[in-house]
Amino acid sequence: MKPTRAEPNAAARDPDAKLMLRAKQGDEVAFTQLVTSYQDRLVGVLTHLVQDRQAAEDLAQEVFLKIYKARHGYEPTAKFSTYLFRIANNLASNRRRDVGRKREVTLVGSDSGPLGARPAEQILAETSGMMPARQFARIEIQAVVQDALSTLNENQRMAVLLHKFEEMSYIDIAATLDTTVSAVKSLLSRARENLRVKLEPYVTQGTWGSQD
């Protein structure tokens, strides 16, 4: 394995960490710059994580608010992106727990699955008659991939999203998820093996949606 610790000076050289230090000194413009730099990335990851666009935006807003409120205690011990996604992961975990508790009460009589969302196949069946074939094929691929992603546990999913969309190294993912690099290696190995099992039929046959 490669080195398992983040380089200490990396945080000090991180331009976003410098912006955050300016925000800590009361520079609102610097903080607004951070919001605009990270909002799309954050909302994107959170949307795939919680599978609810509006909830993702609300969570992202909460993340920025939390960071701003904690600005006086900010110390650049890691890259700013690591710091931001660690807070995002914690808030998303809290939300999942809250939603889980509420669902225990409201699930009776609902047609939701254990994860709350209806199966991709059901949604596709409802929408397939309303769009051109090419567009439908693309949406079908997205639904199948999203469905495969939703079968991963929350840590696996976050690790996959950070690695795929944020191009984070194992070291940074470990710092974000507050775990070891070795644990991240196992997480990603299992996650990608699960994705392979789910998606391989679609890759080899090239016929989207033909599998249950």
Partner: peptide, 9 residues
Amino acid sequence: LLGQLPTSP
């Protein structure tokens, strides 16, 4: 295939 996921700005 994960790259096929829609972006959500």
